[in-house]
Design a protein around this nucleic acid. Structure first.
Lengths: 282, 282
DNA sequence: AGCGGCGATACCTCCCCGGTATCGGACCAG
DNA sequence: CTGGTCCGATACCGGGGAGGTATCGCCGCT
């Protein structure tokens, strides 16, 4: 199977429309139709159901969509990492570390300091991204190592080391009745009238249903809370960045949040290994 | 990057010889040379060092070899799983479960029974393989789920659930002085004269250096022990398959062996999920 | 100097990819 | 049922690229 065919198929499977997929790929529709037919012939499998009401995926087609995306990511990763390795004529090409914008500020600073002090340390590019993007960045080679927070971030398919565990607090606008309490329970928070919990995007970019405002970024969320439009349950360490007008109250029965350092499993890079070692020694 | 180029590069990187690589790929040498040059141009990276004393990998080249193998595995997996999904017009295509020949006999039987009793269970093909092959089989799509033994098998890049933990015993020929002991320590075993521990192959198929006999299979090993040529430290459950002439003595300070069920992280197959659920309920 | 091994180059052929034009079936409006 | 439109499939053509053969250039060995 050639990557060209795979890219074409993924485009069609996502659009469920040959014409639009072809446009998006920058080719005409007929060669796209032919490429998909040829792929189906070679695999001996019907991938798409062409009905008069548009195109639908067969069972085999949805398998290929899932597996094919992973394969294309792996190819992108190979290409990117090779390019980066080539840019550094001497030794390691520098490491890209990715973490959610607005989180892990202190831990990250300590980690970078500790690693920089090691002999043979290379440049670490810090990349900040939105919620749920890290796994993708690691898989397609744009990043080499990430700081994640379980149980929020999925660590499926990644190697991890635990760095830090902490409880959670509920962040509320100052003056809210609950701010007087020493600690609260999940049930207290779930029932808050007029202060819905925000909705984070899933890995595929869609949002769960619900009443709360959709949120991509940390700071965005804190602002909403200050405006009295939402509340949120977040790790204790947000206390460090609470502005005036925001109050944090511990939530007794919220799940513990574990900060982990994660990397793709076949990453045998010396620099990543050293970074992980530095992190576990913090 | 096209898979053809990637396959060509991996062949050359493994052979470190254009002529032999071309022969192995079934093409002539000149097109292979050109393909590699074109790949290097497109990546903007020197991958191979052509010296008069043959070919060597550059830093970027070894990155691409490692990442490229993973990407090719992912493509093979996509192709195999799609083909298998297409063969089953109704529902799921059957699951391939892989485990080491000679191990986990009882646990496996119970798992298959428990899963078969579930509603909606599909056919489970059991595949037996040698030491260290399971991870590869999962990655390139020849298998969907595996029974592994930590810490011997690497579970890097796989999702796992723990099923069973057990201590280890040393297996000795009957009549050996140590067989009178109720239990022994690692240091007792390491010092055994004339009964070296066997060497298992690494993931890449090579053997570590040492005195012991190289071993691929369980039964092979037990036979060597009965002949008085080796001893081995193995999980307790081997007791069930000890023939006459073999004795097992618990090793107090050997690491615990954990049997886990493992699957590739993006495997969203309903059948694999049900199998894992059945396994954790055992 | 002569020779053998090995990768690069030159040059040719043919296939396959992509483009344009057109077809054919499904659905819709009247 | 007829004309229109939407959409994927088919027909056909042209160019680029993949692979083949022959040969070169370089290095090391004797």
């Amino acid at each position: 199977m050639e990557t060209r065919e795979l890219r074409y198929f993924v485009a069609v499977a996502e659009e469920l429309h040959f014409g639009r997929a072809a446009q998006q790929l920058g080719i005409a529709q007929p060669p796209l139709s032919r490429a998909i037919q040829q792929l189906e012939r070679r695999l001996g499998a019907a991938l798409l159901e062409r009905g008069s009401r548009g195109v639908t995926l067969t069972e085999a087609g949805s398998v290929l969509l899932r597996e094919g995306r992973a394969a294309l990511d792996a190819i992108d990763a190979a290409e990117r990492r090779t390019r980066r390795a080539a840019l550094a004529p001497t030794g390691q090409p520098g490491v890209v570390l990715v973490t959610k914008a607005g989180a892990t500020g202190e831990l990250l600073a300590k980690l970078l300091d500790a690693y920089a002090a090691e002999p043979g340390a290379v440049a670490v590019d810090v990349m900040l991204c939105g919620i749920g993007e890290q796994e993708r960045l690691l898989r397609d080679g744009r990043a080499d190592v990430a700081l994640l927070h379980r149980p929020f971030d999925s660590t499926a398919g990644l190697d991890t080391e635990e760095l830090h565990a902490e409880g959670q607090v509920v962040v509320l606008p100052a003056g809210h009745p609950l701010t007087g309490r020493a600690r609260v329970r999940m049930s207290d928070v779930a029932a808050l009238p007029g202060l819905p919990l925000p909705r984070w995007p899933h890995a595929d970019g869609t949002f769960p249903d619900g009443a709360g405002p959709p949120v991509h970024h940390h700071t965005q969320l804190l602002q909403l809370i200050a405006l009295g439009r939402a509340s949120a349950i977040l790790p204790e360490s947000v206390r460090a960045e609470l502005r005036d007008g925001l109050v944090a109250v511990p939530v007794a029965d919220a799940p513990t949040v574990t900060t982990v350092i994660a990397w793709p499993p076949h990453s045998r890079s010396r620099a990543v290994a050293a970074l992980v070692r530095a992190a576990t020694r913090l």
